[in-house]
Each structure stands twice: as structure tokens, then as C-alpha cells.
Simulated assay, not measured.
Amino acid sequence: MATLQYLPPVKPSAIALGTVFNHAASLAVLGPLFGDTYRQAQAANSKEEFFKSKEAATAAASWGSSLVGSAIQAYGVGALINATGTLSYKGAAYLGSLIFMASAAPAIVSQIITEKRPLDTIAVGTVARVFETVGLSMFLTWWGTRTNPFD
């Protein structure tokens, strides 16, 4: 039987702010910065998933699952920061880069080689993923993730 004791603790405020950070990066920063290209990238990345999923019948359900996914991502990044003992921004940037390479890079390579999507759409999607990995790691390092700062 699996127990929760193996999951590293992460400060709840770090999870909450990390969730907000991901949504703010997507909506407030990347949307106006890249405009229609960003909206096209978001639609291209989520359209197939949206129509394949019976559970995503409404926009509210889609937004809610995105919010939960962002919270899980914030916890995961915070837990990795704690588990690796990352304390510096340089270390956070390296950790975020590794997370990016493990999670987003395969899909980006597939979009370039197999799907042959427009490069501007791929570039904007890549910038969004960098914000969600490297940016989130650095933001959480700044905020702090440890439940006990003396750990």
C-alpha cells in the first residue's frame, strides 16, 4: 500500500502562487506579447485533446482541469526543488531546463519534424513551455518551497 509519506512537502503558498504564475504567464504575458499567434498555438495544442475528451464538454471543465494541472505541476516543480536542494536561481534555471527537456522537448521536435506545424506557432508554444518550466522553477525558488526553512 502506497503512503503519502514519500511525497515531499511543499509550502502550500508556493503551490498556490505557482498555479497563478502559470496562468498569468499564459494569459497576461504571452497572450498580448504574441497576440493571434499565441492563440493559434493554444488552439492547435488543445483542440485535438478537447474534442477527444468526453469529459471536456464545457469550457468550465476545461479551465478547471487546466487549473488542477497547473497546481500539480507547481507541486511537482516545488518538490523537485526541495528534493534536489536547489537554492540558487542558476540551479533553478538548470532544473527548469531539465524539466523542459523531459516534458516539452519531445512534443516540440514532433511538431517540427512529423506534424510540420508553422514555425511561429511552434516558437510561441515553446516560449510558453519555457515559462511553465524554467520560469516556474525560478519563481518558486524566489518565493521558497520548503515548509520548514531550516531543512
Score class of each variant (00 low, 15 high):
L4I: 13
Q5M: 05
Y6M: 04
K11G: 01
K11H: 13
A16N: 07
L17M: 15
T19M: 03
V20A: 15
A24L: 10
S26F: 02
A28Q: 07
A28F: 14
V29I: 15
V29D: 13
L30P: 00
G31Y: 13
P32D: 11
D36N: 15
D36P: 03
Q40Y: 12
Q40R: 14
Q42L: 14
Q42D: 13
A44Y: 04
A44T: 08
N45D: 11
S46K: 06
K47F: 08
E48M: 15
K52D: 09
K52Y: 07
A56H: 13
T58W: 12
A60Q: 08
A61E: 07
S65D: 07
A71N: 08
Q73G: 11
Q73T: 14
V77C: 05
N82W: 04
S88W: 07
K90Q: 09
G91D: 01
A93W: 11
F100G: 02
M101T: 10
A104S: 09
P106M: 02
P106L: 03
A107F: 08
I108S: 08
I113T: 09
T114W: 07
E115K: 15
P118Y: 05
L119G: 00
D120C: 02
D120V: 14
A123S: 01
G125M: 10
A128G: 08
F131D: 03
F131Q: 00
L136N: 02
M138K: 07
M138H: 04
F139N: 00
L140G: 11
W142A: 11
W143L: 13
T145E: 00
